[in-house]
């Protein structure tokens, strides 16, 4: 049942530059981009916490001051993290539904993706 990761015949990855953009390929590539972005945000968050909690905080404060964090930057990053997180969550649940074999027909695709975008924008507005 289980096959090694390298040997198995994997499906073709969604390349950006080769194909004309379709609905399914665009949602797939943004799933990957949002995943990489979330990993990047998560590691930077861990690094900032390690700087704040370190014993020589007074020396490290000089590096933190040089960022000059103002209010709009915090709101901007919050919105981006929320957008990436909920897009990844919704599209991941959609992938899991597809893996079970439901709603695989092409006629459901546009309605399903429209529903995803509307729910994402509703969450971003009424956060």
């Amino acid at each position: 049942m289980f096959i090694k990761f390298k040997i198995s015949n994997r499906p073709i990855a969604p390349h950006l530059l080769v194909y004309t953009p379709q609905l399914s390929s665009l949602f797939s590539i943004w799933h990957r981009i949002s995943g990489v972005g979330l990993a990047f945000f998560f590691t930077t968050f861990l690094i900032f916490i390690r700087i704040i909690l370190s014993s020589n905080f007074a020396c490290n404060l000089l590096t933190l001051i040089s960022f000059e964090i103002s209010q709009w930057i915090i709101i901007y990053f919050n919105l981006f993290i929320l957008l990436f997180l909920f897009y990844h969550l919704f599209n991941g649940t959609r992938h899991i539904i597809w893996d079970f074999g439901f709603l695989l027909d092409i006629k459901y695709l546009s309605k399903f993706s429209l529903f995803l975008l509307v729910s994402l924008s509703l969450i971003l507005i009424f956060q």
Partner: peptide, 17 residues
């Protein structure tokens, strides 16, 4: 065709969400 890591990613994502 199910690989071990394919299964692990889905199950772990369900747990986290």
């Amino acid at each position: 065709m199910i690989t071990f890591q394919w299964l692990i990613v889905r199950v772990v994502a369900l747990f986290i969400s």
